[in-house]
């Protein structure tokens, strides 16, 4: 399992990145993260939605309700222009940390046994 702190830190880039691929809703986002990380990153519902709302408050996301013909009413989120900019910044930061760590760990990193 990945540490709580790291999970918390990765919430925002995950959300922004997933929504950059197209609009989505909460459950789908959690599922995608679950699938992408092979179950390594588990988000609680109670943290995801408040964060979505908070990003919406900051105008990085916008939300809308979509009534499906067959199926339940869902609240969808998508990135705003500001959200795309924020994503770029996020990306920049994560990459620079990633690169720095790579330099430390050598050209062909071997993962230590979990």
């Amino acid at each position: 399992m990945i540490s709580k702190a790291l999970v918390a830190a990765s919430l925002k880039p995950f959300i922004l990145s997933i929504l950059a691929d197209g609009e989505s809703y909460g459950y789908e986002i959690i599922q995608r993260v679950h699938d992408l990380t092979g179950g390594q990153v588990q988000w609680t519902t109670g943290t995801l939605y408040p964060l979505l709302h908070s990003l919406e408050n900051k105008n990085l996301l916008e939300s809308f309700w979509r009534e499906a013909d067959a199926g339940p009413r869902r609240k969808y989120y998508r990135l705003t222009a500001k959200g795309y900019k924020a994503l770029a910044t996020e990306k920049q930061q994560w990459l620079s940390i990633h690169e720095a760590l790579l330099k430390l760990w050598g050209p062909s990193p071997t993962l230590s046994p979990a």
Partner: peptide, 25 residues
């Protein structure tokens, strides 16, 4: 199980409250 992934008791409210004092709402 779904309730368990909600998070600890009370933490949902707390998280929401934090957000709710945002300016837009």
């Amino acid at each position: 199980q779904a309730m368990a992934t909600m998070g600890e008791y009370g933490s949902v409210e707390r998280e929401y409250e934090k957000v709710y004092w945002g300016k837009r709402r």
